[in-house]
Design a protein around this nucleic acid. Structure first.
Lengths: 144, 144
DNA sequence: ACCCTAATTTAGTATAGGCTAAATTTATGA
DNA sequence: TCATAAATTTAGCCTATACTAAATTAGGGT
């Protein structure tokens, strides 16, 4: 089974901490946030426009425009100037993987007793750090 | 009860996501990583030197030096040039809060069935996104 | 067809966080 | 003590992610 989610290599070297990976994956976290949202918008409204993204992300349209250019450069989206963006296969797979992690994280937090709204908010940041092993463990735990 | 952990204001506005806060707190995540490590080093070896930090954090000594200057500017540490750094009260409280979240997150993942080494690695990134409400819920869940 | 508005991009700026190379300061060993 | 090694800072560079202001393009209504 291929792992489409570009979580950093989990190689716990050092003392009780593994900071390196957590920090280096920041660009990928941004990519994941964007493709998740683009995928959602495509489902709900048929297309993803920059104007929608900047409202939902809470950043300026300029930031969205520049970030979309980086995502296009990195192969997550295709974007013709002044047009809606569309996910590539790579982008769609990242979106799927991110959303699965998000859903599982929310479910875990709810199981633990966290109210849904707070679970949604907290899971947003946490989902990016769920490794494949943890993903499987959470699945198994929730299936109990 | 004061909340020393500068987790962003949890105000879930919008659709099923709250991206804004997750991204803006990045600087604080870095601060938390550093003060946690400085606090650990102080306990274990009596002081925290830049050379130790850069080994453990996996970044260059230059990056450590510059980051420590930012942390000093922001009041998390006091640092005389060419000397070890020490946490301020603010820094110590952030370190304590971070380590508590880290420990709880590891415990939760272990309870879910994640091996310790992987739990440690994943918790490193996740701990920064645990809100006060979720913290309490995890505590209660683990106490069951 | 044409104007006007909305959306997007470009230009220019800032900060965080990363790097290498070079300079500086502290620490150590003969 | 004094040369050398180790640690730290400075200088200079890069990318990602933010912003405002200005220019450009797309789309709608008359």
């Amino acid at each position: 089974m291929l792992n489409y989610f570009p979580v950093s290599t989990n190689s716990p070297i050092g003392p009780s901490h593994t900071f390196t990976q957590a920090r280096q994956d920041h660009a990928i976290e941004t990519a994941a946030d964007y493709v998740e949202l683009i995928d959602e918008l495509r489902e709900k409204t048929g297309e993803a426009r920059g104007a929608d993204l900047c409202k939902l992300l809470g950043v300026s349209h300029v930031t969205v425009s520049k970030t979309l250019q980086r995502l296009a450069r990195d192969g997550y989206v295709v974007a013709k100037p002044y047009r809606s963006v569309f996910l590539t296969e790579k982008g769609r797979m990242l979106a799927e993987a991110s959303r699965e992690r998000h859903r599982l994280m929310v479910s875990l937090l709810e199981r633990v007793g966290v109210p849904t709204a707070i679970a949604e908010a907290d899971a947003e940041g946490m989902e990016h750090h769920v490794s494949g092993e943890t993903l499987q463990a959470i699945k198994a735990f929730l299936a109990q």
